Simulated scan of single mutants.
Amino acid sequence: MSEDVPVKGLRRVELRSNDPAGSAEYYRRLFGWIVMPADDGTLRCWVGDRLAALIRRPADWETPGWHLVLGGRPTALLADPAGVTATLDPGRVRHGPWAPPPRHGEPCWVELMTADTTDDYWAQHLGWTLRAPGEGSDIKPFALFDAPDDGSAARSVASRLLVDEATATDVGATWMCYLAATDIKLVTDTAVEGGGTVLIDPREVPTGVIAAVADPFGAVCTLLEDPIGWGGAWAAV
């Protein structure tokens, strides 16, 4: 367990890409990211003064795609029984319910998509509790992970969605990364122009207006239009 639980949000997201430069250019067109190469060969992508994402080649044992880097100590790689991973990294949380509202191109929510109930694993390691979003609701198939804060009410940091085995096999158990989009139709159109694929057209869900896109290299993220805060509509729940 982290020495600093509860974990209250993200340091950043990482995009592990076999073509870091191509990925960086694709997302720069979508979100206007400021892309800055680092001495270690990674590409650091900024929205204003906040680091939104880091793009790098995956190590031999890593799966390409989006990966969460959560604010917590000590540094650790977490892997639940279903094989879903996340990294703990010491330092300031830049994205979460206690951080400033997400801007266009910034991470704005994360959702655990899994066919297995691994809630206890993440609750134990991150200091979270699981909550149904409505009174009298069951935590299946959807629930919120909450983190307490000294002197204030708990807030939702992430969600969990149980999917069927076929979906889990096709998509894979994963943490889905949501990115804020001021104009979701414009971003999906730009994604297609850049060689990406719209997997879910813009639609209204309890979180807000979302769309899902795959970039030209296969990495999938969800867009959330103009969220009022971390988690969109969940920020007010």
Rank of each mutant, 00 (worst) to 15 (best):
L51D: 05
E111D: 14
Y178R: 08
I55T: 03
G22F: 01
P227E: 09
V220K: 10
V13A: 13
R103F: 13
A219P: 11
G96A: 00
R155F: 11
D138V: 09
T197S: 06
A236Q: 09
P102T: 07
L68E: 01
D40L: 02
R131E: 15
L54R: 10
R56F: 00
L70E: 11
T197L: 05
A52S: 12
R57L: 08
W109G: 03
L43I: 02
G172K: 13
G232D: 04
Y26D: 05
P216S: 13
T87G: 05
T129G: 12
R103E: 15
H104C: 07
D60M: 11
V213A: 12
L162N: 08
G136M: 01
D150E: 14
F142R: 06
V192E: 15
L30Q: 00
V209P: 01
P202M: 04
V110I: 06
D49A: 12
R155S: 13
G72E: 04
E165W: 04
T63W: 06
L199N: 08
T207R: 10
R44N: 11
A212K: 13
A147F: 01
F31K: 00
G71C: 02
V237C: 11
A38D: 13
E62W: 11
R11G: 08
L223G: 08
C221P: 08
P202Y: 00
L112E: 03
L30I: 03
W128S: 15
L224E: 14
A24D: 07
T197Q: 05
D226Y: 09
T129C: 11
W175K: 00
W175T: 00
E225I: 10
T114M: 04
G65W: 01
T63K: 11
A82L: 02
R44Y: 08
T63C: 02
T42P: 04
M36K: 14
T190E: 15
P107W: 09
G48E: 01
A219Y: 09
T207V: 15
D49P: 06
L223E: 09
T222D: 14
Y26Q: 04
G72K: 01
A153M: 11
A168W: 02
R12E: 00
P133A: 12
E62T: 08
